[in-house]
Design a protein around this nucleic acid. Sequence first.
DNA 1: CACGTTTATCAACACTCGTTGACAAATTCT
DNA 2: AGAATTTGTCAACGAGTGTTGATAAACGTG
Lengths: 186, 186
Amino acid sequence: MIERKSERTKSAIRAAARQVFALVGYERATIRDIAREANIDPAMVMRYFGSKDGLFADTANFDLNLPQDLGEAPDKAGERMAAHFIAVWEQEGSGFAVLLRSASSNPVAAARIAAVLSEQLLPAVVAMVGPQEAPQRAGLIASQMLGLALSRYVLSLGPVAAMSREQIIAGIGPTLQRYLYGPLAR
Amino acid sequence: MIERKSERTKSAIRAAARQVFALVGYERATIRDIAREANIDPAMVMRYFGSKDGLFADTANFDLNLPQDLGEAPDKAGERMAAHFIAVWEQEGSGFAVLLRSASSNPVAAARIAAVLSEQLLPAVVAMVGPQEAPQRAGLIASQMLGLALSRYVLSLGPVAAMSREQIIAGIGPTLQRYLYGPLAR
DNA sequence: CACGTTTATCAACACTCGTTGACAAATTCT
DNA sequence: AGAATTTGTCAACGAGTGTTGATAAACGTG
């Protein structure tokens, strides 16, 4: 057999876990729920992922994957960044929904979001504006993007969820642009 | 006795509940934890609040309390709004921390945040810019403010938590200003 | 003081959860 | 085919949870 049977089961569990975790969060998701969603026995989850924590750690990952050339067209950076964020989030199984849904109550998820900020967003901003002002600028950007994701995808707040991608980008792009290159308080 | 003894106990429970709920969220908070924090018996919680849900419903309330005169100085509205948000959140026992910490996993909390948007923020924005564009503008404002609160108070993301109130206001005020009165995509 | 009401204590129930281990079935290898 | 390994099933355990009811202590009132 070219592919172990267990790999099929593992990915079925993973897919079900992503779905359930993203929908109800780490605490409310039960192994029994996930197993039922994947049409397997709860014990299989333990066999292949060791524990509920292990499954979550495997499922809740996210790569921001920012383009490297944002700084080459500085006047377009904000808009491009906004568009990139939305594109990455809306691709299925990105793991970001899992992460954000559980971040408020699960320390592991919170730490991973913090890591995305410090290891992916911050370096990109450093490359654009230098190390001096980068933390503050990256922090402001993170606050806007996380707030958008929370409002639109997690809480589904009416007005935010109703906006089109284009409206979102038109609204938030200039904000990111200013957070990147606009004036800053000392 | 001028004040029933039960009122003392009830407010002790309330205070402990706010603290525990705000720290770990609805699901991870246990009645036993809250009771221990308040130095009372778990059964007292049931007597006075009926259920864990009842206690949460009693604890998790929030009034944005926006000033009525924001529209009178339109060029200052964004900055004043930002300053007001921060002031309201940082006053102890505001209940907002409880709400936001649990919003991602608790439907009641999510619904209450949605209600703050639709019943408090939206009407204020309608009064300033009219009903046509208000939903989109209020949605954008909510996304930025929720994201700030999430980053700074719930997740304590380093760069955001490190900023001073003045830096926050200087950074976010202009954003709200543009969300209120700036150009908008159709 | 004695009585009724309010407040507090305690132990237990019923349930759900993550997790485990024994065992069976299927699959692969010799 | 027979043995060994992998994969799956099932029932149960132990811990923790919200919740309840019986019972005691504290308190105000005649």
